[in-house]
C-alpha cells in the first residue's frame, strides 16, 4: 500500500451561478478532508460557494494517444458549425 494520500480533483462553483469548474488537484486521506483542503487551498480569496471533490482514480479519461481517431474526424466537418446562415440584422449579435 502506498504511503501517499490519494489524489483528488477539485471543482469549485464561483460566485456567479456558473457550473462547477475544475480548478486543480490535491492530496487528502479521505473525501471530507479533501473538501477541507480544497477550501484552504483553492478558496482563500473568496473564489467559491460550493466545492466538489472527486478521487482522481475514479475519473475515466480519454487517452491522449487516441486523439487522432477521437477528434480529428470532426476537423473536416465544418458544416456542423452553424456558420452558413445569414443572421438577420434584427436578430442582433449572436
Amino acid at each position: 500500500m502506498s504511503n501517499e494520500w490519494p489524489l483528488w480533483e477539485v471543482f469549485i462553483r464561483g460566485q456567479h451561478g456558473l457550473s462547477h469548474r475544475h480548478v486543480g488537484s490535491l492530496h487528502a486521506p479521505d473525501a471530507q478532508l479533501a473538501i477541507k483542503n480544497a477550501r484552504d487551498v483553492y478558496t482563500r480569496r473568496n473564489e467559491g460557494v460550493s466545492i466538489w471533490v472527486v478521487k482522481a482514480s475514479d475519473i475515466a479519461a480519454s487517452s491522449p494517444g487516441h486523439k487522432g481517431p477521437l477528434f480529428e474526424p470532426s476537423n473536416s466537418k465544418v458544416y456542423r458549425h452553424p456558420t452558413f446562415f445569414d443572421i438577420p440584422d434584427e436578430a442582433g449579435r449572436m
Partner: peptide, 11 residues
Amino acid sequence: PALEEDIALAN
C-alpha cells in the same frame, strides 16, 4: 508535512 496542511495551518 504536506502542502495542503501547510496552507491550512497558515490560514
